[in-house]
């Protein structure tokens, strides 16, 4: 009896050391980007995609949903910040959290879809994102700027927004790290694996799912807001572009759903690859993104981290 109770401690030690190490490297690296004069734009988007893919992972990897209309949260966040700053003269630092609130409100509106599963959920999510786009496109021009979009004016601060994006990423990763070890996280995973069985084991499935869903919706909405601030312009074509969903999903899957490190690694690898391809063959960029997705699904369906853990199951306890 002595060995089984002592073993988890050493595993936990490795786990926390690894987490601290990886978190530290990530933190120091990104914090020094503007200081060392590295490419701010590239790293801004890298952090954005890490956040998006990680938050998506909560809905998909933890809760078992495939929201193919994930861009809706991003878009609503982008427009919330843009409208509040431009039309209501809100300070950006007040507008950004309100973007997150807007994402949560939208997620609550979509909450009834959580009783759907599999492709039905995916298709409905897609349709709802389409409705969001159309509704915003057809709102009066005084509010959303119509098809021209909204210019935020001269309020852009690239470096400031870079560090805000970094803060958002850190908070997102911290929340997901907590979630992965928490009781809520276990309840979510049980619900993902077998919702009825989880319910009969005492898990309040609708509530647990809703929490997962809200966490998953909050961060993309904030990301949308920060990006709007960073680029200074928002329009429906880009803010609700299905490619945003596509990239989020692909990056998350590439790294491996269900682990904390997966989507981070996936985003880093794929954004870097994307940049490389884009620089070499700008025309082929989209084509290669599509082909990469196909190859990924066919040959690495569990992603980088997922495949590794399948080969080395005993590492599951060490890798966050």
């Amino acid at each position: 009896m002595a060995s089984p109770s002592r073993a988890p401690d050493s595993a936990d030690r490795i786990y926390f050391t690894l987490t601290a190490l990886m978190g530290g490297v990530l933190l120091i690296y990104f914090a020094s980007v503007p200081l060392l004069g590295l490419n701010v734009a590239f790293h801004f988007y890298l952090m954005l995609w890490i956040t998006m893919a990680s938050a998506f992972n909560v809905a998909s990897g933890f809760a078992g949903y495939m929201p193919f209309g994930y861009v809706a949260f991003y878009g609503i966040g982008a427009f919330t910040t843009a409208i509040l700053v431009k039309k209501a003269a809100f300070p950006v630092f007040l507008a950004l959290p309100l973007s997150g609130v807007a994402g949560i409100v939208l997620a609550l509106l979509f909450a009834p879809t959580l009783r759907l599963s599999g492709i039905y959920f995916g298709i409905v999510s897609l349709a709802l994102a389409g409705i969001c786009r159309l509704v915003i496109t057809n709102m009066p021009e005084e509010i959303t700027g119509g098809s021209f979009g909204l210019q935020l004016g001269s309020r852009a601060h690239p470096v400031q927004s870079f560090y805000v994006m970094m803060a958002v990423m850190v908070v997102a990763l911290a929340v997901i790290l907590w979630l992965s070890r928490s009781r809520l996280g276990k309840a979510l995973r049980a619900t993902r694996d077998d919702a009825d069985a989880a319910e009969m084991m005492g898990v309040n499935v609708p509530i647990v799912r809703l929490w997962g869903w809200l966490i998953s919706a909050f961060f993309p909405a904030v990301c949308g807001g920060v990006e709007a601030w960073y680029t200074n312009v928002v329009d429906t074509e880009t803010a609700f572009n299905t490619l945003i969903t596509a990239k989020t999903v692909i990056y998350a899957v590439a790294g491996g759903l269900g682990t904390v490190t997966g989507p981070v690694l996936g985003a880093v690898a794929m954004v870097w690859l994307d940049e490389l391809i884009w620089r070499q063959f700008p025309l082929l960029n989209l084509l290669i993104l599509g082909l990469a997705t196909i190859v990924l699904v066919l040959f690495l369906p569990r992603g980088i981290v997922g495949t590794l853990l399948r080969k080395k199951p005993q590492w599951r306890r060490y890798i966050p």
Binding site: R183, K186, A187, R189, A190, R192, D193, D194, A197, A198, M201, G202, V203, G258, R316
Partner: peptide, 16 residues
């Protein structure tokens, strides 16, 4: 069973 959870986590679900 909760297929993609460890045995220990499977047992923790009813006592969360």
């Amino acid at each position: 069973v909760f297929r993609k959870m460890s045995l220990i986590d499977n047992l923790l679900v009813p006592v969360l």
